[in-house]
Amino acid sequence: MQAKRNLTWRFVDSADLPTCVLEGIVGEDAGLDDLVPDIKGPARFDLSGVARINSTGVREWLRFVEAINGKGPHRLFRCSAPIVAQLNMIDNFRGSAKVESVIAPYYCEACGHELATEVTIENNTPKLPSPACAECGETMALDEMPARYFYFLSY
């Protein structure tokens, strides 16, 4: 395990590919260069714990993606909302990696309860769940326009 000021990562057991869990803030001091040697082949990255990625962090991430691209194909899963924002905005943010799932915001129109839940992506299409609200039992809906939140699937 490598610890830096604002970003940490650890590898967890997985039956499939080596799985790396990233948590914290991706900034210029993220130290992702130190992670590159640990990626020896195709890997999965759990990005649900990435709370923020700032502008210099985007540049660090792109360098990281470029450095590991040849060892893929990699998979990104449980991408947090800040990661989804960058997927939608920045050219080549995921490199050649496939996005397996994202964390998406859900909202209950009846009582205002909010939920962040995992949405899987199959055949380049989000499989939107319809969870019941934990507060009032009504069906919750995605709190974003699908075309906007999943824009990265269109290019």
Partner: peptide
């Protein structure tokens, strides 16, 4: 940042040139 291309992110030292857009966004 309204357009996706490889010119979005500054590769020089200093800032990445994205801060204002990210704040706006």
């Amino acid at each position: 940042c309204f357009r996706h291309n490889d010119q979005q992110v500054s590769k020089s030292a200093g800032g990445a040139g994205l801060g204002l857009y990210m704040a706006f966004n």
